[in-house]
Design a protein around this nucleic acid. Sequence first.
RNA 1: CGGGGAAUGGCGCAGCUUGGUAGCGCGCCUGCUUUGGGAGCAGGAGGCCGGGAGUUCGAAUCUCCCUUCCCCGACCA
Length: 470
Amino acid sequence: MAKAPVLTPQAEDFPRWYQDIISKAELADNGPVRGTMVIRPYGYSIWEQMQAEVDRRIKLAGARNAYFPLFIPESYLTREAEHVEGFSPELAVVTVAGGKELEEPVVVRPTSETVIGEFMAKWVQSYRDLPLLLNQWANVVRWELRPRVFLRTSEFLWQEGHTAHVSEADGRAYAVRILHEVYESFMRDVLAMPVVVGRKTAKERFAGATNTMTCEAMMGDGKALQMGTSHELGQNFARAFDIAFQSAEGQQELAWTTSWGVSTRMVGGLIMCHGDDAGLRIPPRLAPVQVVVMAVREDDAVIDRCRSLVDELLAAGIRVESDLRTETSAGRRATDWELKGVPVRLELGPRDLAEGAVTMIDRIAGTKDAVPLDGIAIRLHAALDAAQTALLAQATARREERTAEVTTIEEAVEAAATGWARIPWRAVGVEGEAALAAQAITVRCLVMPDGSLPPADDTPGAVAIVARAY
RNA sequence: CGGGGAAUGGCGCAGCUUGGUAGCGCGCCUGCUUUGGGAGCAGGAGGCCGGGAGUUCGAAUCUCCCUUCCCCGACCA
C-alpha cells in the first residue's frame, strides 16, 4: 500500500516541505492580513517552552521583565538618525485614531529602544542606578515585503532586552554575556542547535548599534538563519534620550546601552534544522509533548492501562500525553505524532498487554521495540537524553560537512550553493561583501580562528562566514 | 516599484480555446465493516465561479474596467 508521501520531500522542494510541515503539524496558519500569522496551539506550545527556558536564563543574568507600550510617538524614532533610517521602510504608522487625524502620528513599535530609552533617562540619576537591566516579552511590527511564516512576518513575538551601564566595557561584557549564557546555551542545550557566535559586519549591523553580535545556525538545506542578536549601542541612544548619570566622581556622564533579542523565528529555525521527510523532530528538552501513549485498540483493558501509564510517567516528570482516539486508525495517528515531532511514542495494544510490554517507537533513533512496562520511565529518560544528544550531534555533523574552508570569493560563492564558506575576512572586505550580495550571498558574521568574537570590524585574522540566508 | 502568473465548496485543482446554469481529489457528516504504519464500502452536506459593466435567448467560459493574491529582483528578529 504505497501512499503518497505525507510531506513534499525536502530534496524535492525545501520551501514547500517547510510550508507543508507548518500546515500538517498544525503549527500555524497565514493571517488575514498579508504577512501576518496565526500561531496554532501546538506551535504556540513550542514557543511557550522556548519562552520559559529563555526567560529563566535572562533572569539568571540579572535582568527583570517589564512592559512598554505598543505605540510609540513618531518623534521618538527620529531622534537617533541611523535608527530611523534603518526602520522607516518597515514602519506601520497610525495616523487616524478615535475617528480623528492624530496631531502626531504614532508608530507601532518595530523594537523599543526609543521608548525604553526615554524611561531609562527618567529612572537613571546616579551611577548607583546602574546597571539597569530590563527585558520585555512583546509583539513587534516590521512591515515585510516577502513574508514567510515564523521566519519573516510583519508581526512577530519576541523578547527584547535593554540595558544601561556605566561604561563601555560593562555594556560590552553584558551584551556578550547574554549572547553566550542566554542565547548560545539555550540554542545548544535545549534546541540542540549548534550556532556560530560572531560579529556582524558594518553592513549587517543593527540600525543605531556600534556593534551587533549574532548566533547563526545552519538549516537542513545549508542556508543560514540568524537565530538571535545582541547589540552594543554605545552612547547613541543615551545621547538621543539623555540617559545620563552622575558618576562617583561627581561628573555627569552618558550611559552605555545594549539591546538583545530572540523571536518566534526560532520556531522556524527549529523546524528547518531538525525536521525530516516524516515531519518535525523536537529535541526532548524543548518538546511540549515528550512522550505520547497511544491506545492501539478500542479495548477497556488497553485504555485503562494507557491511563495508568500516563499517570506513572507524569509522576516521573515526563511531559506525556495520551491518544485514546481509537475511532481513528492507528496508522493515521502514528503519522500525526511523527509529523508533530514527538520524540517517543508508546503504542499499547492487547498483544503488548498480554506480554506486560509496550511498543516503543523512537522518532529520532528510528527504532521500534517491545519493551517491558516495568521500569519504563527509566528507559524513557535514557531514550530522551539520547535523542537530545543525537539531534545536536546530527546538526553539528551536517554543519561541519557543509562548511568549506576557502580563500577566494569564487570558491565562497561555490560553497554557498550547498552550505557555508569560511574565508579570511581580508579576502572579502567591503567590496567583496557587495559583490557577494549581488548573488544573494551574505557575510553572516566574523569570527576569530579560535571561535572567539573579533573585538573590532577590522581585527586581523578574522574569518568571515559566508552563506545564503533566510 | 520592474518582470511573470492566478482568482471556481474548508484545502488543492479541472472546466474556459469550441458559451447551454459546475466537476474531481483531499477534508467534513451519517451508517456498517474496520483498527499493530495515513482504513474500506455505501449514502450525504457544502459553491452569489474575486467585484462591476457589457455582448448574447443564455456567461465560470467572450469583451472592457476594477480589486486582490502568488512567484522572481533592492531591506530585516
